[in-house]
Amino acid sequence: MTGRTNARRKGSSPASRESSQNDSPPPDAVAEVVTRFDAYARARAARDSLLPRARTGPWHEQHAFDDLQAAVARLRERSRRPAEGA
């Protein structure tokens, strides 16, 4: 890379920095999606567990997936709100 490319990155205008901060999703919504994804991954792994007591049924996996989908929908909704108000 050239110094010229790096200079452009460093020299971003204050307005572009503000818009990029406003475009970022709320941290609590992102954390919720990550938590729900982790729960879904654990439920999916438990479905195929070698230990009979650790196994879960398909309903548990489906419930975790539904929770994940709802969290993603909330994240999308929250991310769109500031753009619509501008």
Rank of each mutant, 00 (worst) to 15 (best):
Met1Ser: 11
Thr2Asn: 06
Gly3Trp: 06
Gly3Cys: 10
Gly3Glu: 07
Thr5Ile: 02
Ala7Met: 08
Arg8Ile: 06
Arg9Val: 13
Gly11Pro: 02
Gly11Asn: 14
Ser13Trp: 03
Pro14Tyr: 03
Pro14Ile: 03
Pro14Phe: 01
Ala15Met: 04
Ser16Asn: 08
Arg17Ala: 04
Arg17Asn: 15
Glu18Cys: 04
Ser19Lys: 10
Ser19Leu: 15
Ser19Pro: 02
Gln21Cys: 02
Gln21Tyr: 02
Asn22Asp: 14
Asp23Ala: 15
Ser24Glu: 14
Pro26Cys: 01
Pro27Leu: 09
Ala31Glu: 11
Val33Thr: 02
Tyr40Gln: 08
Ala41Gly: 02
Ala41Ser: 09
Arg42Gln: 09
Arg42Val: 06
Arg44Gln: 14
Arg44Leu: 14
Ala45Thr: 13
Ala46Ser: 05
Leu51Pro: 01
Leu51His: 05
Pro52Met: 09
Arg53Asn: 09
Arg53Tyr: 10
Ala54Leu: 08
Arg55Tyr: 01
Arg55Asn: 05
Thr56Trp: 06
Thr56Pro: 02
Trp59Tyr: 08
Glu61Trp: 04
Gln62Arg: 10
His63Ser: 12
Ala64Lys: 06
Ala64His: 02
Phe65Ser: 01
Phe65Asp: 09
Asp67Trp: 02
Leu68Ala: 03
Leu68Met: 09
Gln69Ala: 06
Gln69Phe: 07
Ala70Trp: 10
Ala71Asp: 05
Val72Ile: 15
Ala73His: 13
Arg76Gln: 15
Glu77Val: 09
Glu77Pro: 00
Arg78Asn: 08
Arg78Gly: 04
Arg78His: 05
Arg80Trp: 06
Pro82Trp: 00
Pro82Lys: 00
Ala83Pro: 02
Ala83Glu: 01
Ala83Asp: 00
Ala83Val: 06
Ala83Asn: 01
Gly85Phe: 11
